[in-house]
Structures are given as C-alpha cells and as structure tokens.
Design a protein around this nucleic acid. Sequence first.
DNA 1: CGGCAACTTCAGTCATAACTGAAGGTACTG
DNA 2: CAGTACCTTCAGTTATGACTGAAGTTGCCG
Lengths: 189, 189
Amino acid sequence: MTEVAEVPAVSKDSKPALSPVAQKFILHWGEMGTRWGVNRTVAQIHALLYLSQRPMPADEIADTLAVARSNVSTSLRELQGWRIVRVAPILGDRRQHFESMKDIWEMFRVILDERKKREIDPTIRVLGECVAEAGKAGPSEAYARERINEMLEFIASMDTLFQEFQHLPPTAARGLIKLRGRVKKLLPG
Amino acid sequence: MTEVAEVPAVSKDSKPALSPVAQKFILHWGEMGTRWGVNRTVAQIHALLYLSQRPMPADEIADTLAVARSNVSTSLRELQGWRIVRVAPILGDRRQHFESMKDIWEMFRVILDERKKREIDPTIRVLGECVAEAGKAGPSEAYARERINEMLEFIASMDTLFQEFQHLPPTAARGLIKLRGRVKKLLPG
DNA sequence: CGGCAACTTCAGTCATAACTGAAGGTACTG
DNA sequence: CAGTACCTTCAGTTATGACTGAAGTTGCCG
C-alpha cells in the first residue's frame, strides 16, 4: 500500500519542534534534575514551560518531548505540587494550559520551602527523637548522641537562616547577591 | 544495675550490632540521601562512620549494614571521592579503616564544593553556550535567550555567594549562623 | 441524550540503578 | 614461596522507579 501525503497539521496540533538551543537547555536541565533527586521528565517539562512564552497544553508537551500523554499528566501534577507550575486558562480552548513561574528568585524560594517541608522538617523531628532516646539509653550512647545533636543543631541553624530569607520582602532577596565582599563583615565584632 | 563485662571481642570480627538510635539515624540518613540523588547505601555508610567513635574496616561495615563486601568497597570509594571519608591506618591491622569527617560545617563546605565542581560549573558553561547560540540564532530565540540568561545570572550569583563562604577562615563560617535577625540589615542602604 | 474531547488512573512493561558473588590481583607472613 | 587476608573488578541478577497504553471518568456541545 502506498501511504501518501503526511498529516496536513491543522490548527492546534501543529508540529512541535524544539530549537537546538531549547533542546540543549531542556536536556541539560533534565540531567541536573536526576542529580538532585528529581525525575528527568518532570525536570524537562519544567524546563520546557520555563522557556515557553505562552502556556502549553499537556498534549503539546507530550508531542514536543516525545513522552506519553499520561506521563505528562503525572509530571504536571508533581510540578504543581512543587508550586512552580500552574494552570493558566486560555479563552476558547477547553484544554488546560500550563505555565511555569518565571521569576527565578521566587522559584528558588518556593522550592526551598517545599523541600524544607518534605525533608528538613521531618529530619529535625527524627534527629530530635534520636537525641532524646540516646539520652535515656545512658552513657553507651553518649558519643552518638553528641554527633546527632551537632547534626541537629547544624540543620536547625540552616533552617533559621532560610526563614530569614523566606520572610524578606519579595524584591529584597535579589539584593542579597550584592553581598560580594560583604559577607566577612557579618561576623561577630 | 548489673553491669557485667561487655563482649570479650574476639579480635577483629566481633558481632556488629547497632543500637536502636544508631539504626534510626542511619536509616533516616539513607532515606534523605535518595531524595538528594545519593545512593542509599552510600549515605548509610556515611552515617555509620559519622556515628562511629573509631575508624571502621570495610568488612565490619558490610556486616553491620548487611550488604555485600564489594558494595561497601564501591561505596567507600565514592565517599572518598566526595572527600568526606578517608582512610585511617590502624597500627597492627592490615585492613584499611575508614573514618568520616566529623566537623559538620566543614563537611557542608566540602560537599558544596564538590557539587559545584560536578554540577554548577558545567551548568554555567552549558547555559553560557545556550545564550551565545541563541544570540546568533536571531530574534526568534530572543525570549528563550532572555530566560536562559536570567537563569545563568542567578546561578552565577549563587556561585559567587558560595565562594565568599568558601574563603572564610575555617572557624568563621559558624558565626554566620548568628545572623538571626541581621539579614535584613545587609540590604542596600 | 449521544458522541466526543480532555484528562486521569492504573496494571503491566521497560529501563536503569543497585547489588551480589565469584574471580583475580596484591602483598604480607610464616 | 605457598598460603592467607584483604581489596577490587565485573558479569550477571535483582530491585526500583519510570513510562506506556488501555480503560475509565467527567463534562461539554450539538
């Protein structure tokens, strides 16, 4: 059988081709994701939306990245869970469209906050329990107790520092980067 | 309390039992590892050595955590690659013994440095290339170029900030935590 | 109300990372 | 210099997480 002309590509489902630059960025971002415990596809979708000038519907994302529609659905749910992607309704289109947060400082803040909730807070709780239990257990646990306590205090310090950052006026965070050469001056004195 | 003599410890291969507290800490640490892209076993070994008062030989680690000797060998190599575990020769024992860095601030610094080398620096390079290529590609890439450039600048800022931290006198870093309530004062003014 | 489009869920498949045990190298030791 | 202890490497296996396609749900639209 002689298969003739390609699909004419009407309206919404036009060819979703990535520019070489976008491709390079998305692939790298996906790779970085895996290194930090984020699913590669999730990271790629995020990168794609971050580069996109307009909100994208899920099927277009699936076509562009060549993954299953269902996979995109799951990944978008996760990205919304991280609060860095949201639904952006488009007039006259029944499909849901998605857009990424574009302000990187804000994005950074939000991601840190989410990781705090999911990982730091539970860790502080568990280490606190460990220290308490080691205390009851007597002197045989004294060394371990001290080690865990130091870890706990370190993490708690970081947590405090983060909250300082968290509660700065939104625009102020950027200013922190002007710190160049000023960090030393913060030290006690 | 009847404090009877502890296990006679027949030379090197005595029973390697973990206290409940150590177990809890090690398991949690392993779990946190996976969330940040670190192999669970690698993280557990690190936790074990961190809690250990004395350097441990690989076979004892294997017995304690119930993993294969070869797995421990590989994992220790990786931990040494991260520069947070090192060999500590023990007089009269041919086996290599391993100890973890105990100073958490220093450990944090070293890990950040290593992640910078492995992930941040390559990312800065790739994003730089992306921006350059997007520039050549003309106005169709203008938006993507701007997004990537913002990301690049953000990461570069973080990088600079980290280097400030990195070059502080070793004991000084701890002082930074005293920042409570002082962060605001850093802002331009 | 029937049909369709958008979306989600989930059981099964697939890819990858992790782990094991056997084999081999090295160097100490009697 | 044979025997042993220690360590590493690697081919093969197992476990984990990621992904797919089919089936199901919802709600719009003619």
